[in-house]
């Protein structure tokens, strides 16, 4: 069953963000919502996540789905270690040993071995964001929401984060919905890319990205063509 939002309406500070807006997501893949800054992407994500109430509209397929959220900022607990932050969201029914084993696995996947006992204040920004990725996977969720988690990181760190994320995701293929305003990021991570316009939001393009993760950076003909399409659809409304 698909994840659907039907006839969504939402105003924000007198601005009509969404008017009779409908969108659907395929389960088990990474969908990128690409749009210009201030187009209401984060609001859409927060409506999906239940943090923001929609004005009106129907949502189906999201009922009793558990979700994780990788926020734009890592939002770690300063007084918990890397391990403590990851285990914070784990199921209470797990034993301490199970939790420990699971957090070890996740820490390895985001390449933070040896940092399990570190506090967030002792880590770099990129490392903290990786902890928040591990935390999102530590929670037994069906859907992972991501709000521009790569914003403000340099190219090397972005690629490092994408590597961490895809590596962990391949072991555990959950539905991922992430928002971005960056075409590169959308192509590197998204399998389906939905381009949104400025408010009132409309879908201006809906593309599939069939290139495997590893070869997306090399810039094959298909990737270049996709990039062209995304840039021009963004440009129409940008």
């Amino acid at each position: 069953m698909a994840l659907k939002i039907d006839r969504l309406n939402k105003n924000y500070d007198e601005i009509t963000l969404f008017r009779d807006f409908s969108i659907s997501f395929t389960e088990g893949i990474i969908t990128c919502i690409l749009g210009p800054s201030g187009c209401g992407k984060t609001t859409l994500l927060n409506i999906i996540g239940g943090i923001t109430r929609p004005g009106s509209g129907n949502m189906s397929g999201f009922e009793d789905k558990r979700m994780s959220y990788i926020f734009q900022d890592p939002r770690l607990l300063q007084w918990k270690t890397v391990r403590g932050n990851i285990e914070f969201v784990m199921n209470r029914n797990m034993t301490d040993r199970e939790r420990h084993r699971e957090s070890d696995r996740l820490i390895r996947l985001v390449e933070l071995e040896g940092f399990a006992g570190y506090y967030p204040s002792q880590l770099s920004g990129g490392m903290r964001q990786r902890v928040s990725i591990a935390r999102a996977f530590a929670c037994h969720s069906d859907i992972i929401l991501m709000d521009e988690p790569l914003k403000g990181l340099d190219i090397a760190l972005k690629q490092n984060m994408i590597r961490s994320f895809t590596r962990i995701w391949k072991t555990d293929r959950r539905t991922v919905i992430f928002v971005s305003h960056d075409v590169e990021e959308a192509i590197l991570l998204g399998e389906e890319i939905i381009v949104l316009s400025r408010p009132p939001v409309k879908i201006v393009a809906h593309e599939n990205n069939n290139e495997p993760f590893e070869s997306r950076r090399s810039g094959s003909a298909a990737t270049e063509r996709l990039k062209q399409i995304l840039f021009s659809s963004l440009g129409q409304n940008g």
Partner: peptide, 29 residues
């Protein structure tokens, strides 16, 4: 206490008692 941290904890369905004991109390120490 940063309200964003509370949004995070609630999003992950952390119980109220755990939010108090693991978020608020360490934060106010």
């Amino acid at each position: 206490v940063d309200p964003d941290i509370i949004v995070m904890a609630k999003f992950y369905r952390i119980s109220r008692s755990r939010i108090i004991s693991e978020v608020y109390i360490p934060a106010i120490m």
